[in-house]
């Protein structure tokens, strides 16, 4: 185990640390600017996340109440057996969509420039 091996260890450790840097810097930028509400995969409402407000969208089981507050969106009230999407709380990241299956409503956060982001979970 000579000096060149130890230098190689240092290089690998350095590469490992350097890989974290772009992740760290882009973590906050995943937040988008608009929330798109889709009923049965058709867009029904575009909400600007920077304007607080309460909106009502018609779902399959009744009216779904959506609130936008402080750059995040949440489902406040809806008709469903388990209320999973209103329990989900406020979402501000593009990686977590709010999916309300009984009402067939999907709320996803996207960037404002109209690009279609492919998010594969």
């Amino acid at each position: 185990m000579n000096k060149a091996d130890k230098i190689l260890i240092l290089i690998i450790l350095l590469a490992a640390v350097c890989t974290y840097v772009p992740i760290y810097f882009s973590y906050g930028k995943e937040a988008g600017d608009i929330a798109v509400v889709r009923y049965r995969n058709e867009e029904v409402l575009r909400l600007d996340l920077h304007q607080n407000g309460i909106y009502h969208v018609k779902g399959t089981n009744g009216t779904v109440e959506i609130e936008v507050k402080d750059g995040a969106v949440a489902v406040i009230e809806e008709n469903s057996p388990y209320h999973l999407c209103s329990l989900q709380g406020f979402v501000s990241s593009g990686a977590e969509p709010i999916i309300c299956l009984p009402n067939e409503i999907v709320i996803s956060i996207e960037a404002d420039d109209g690009d279609v982001d492919v998010v594969m979970q």
Partner: peptide, 23 residues
């Protein structure tokens, strides 16, 4: 293959644990 660039987050861990296993 999965078009998920976030998978790179596992790379530092694997690199660091690869050092003792390589030795």
């Amino acid at each position: 293959l999965y078009e998920q660039w976030r998978m790179i987050a596992v790379l530092p861990l694997l690199l660091v644990t690869g050092i003792p296993t390589g030795i």
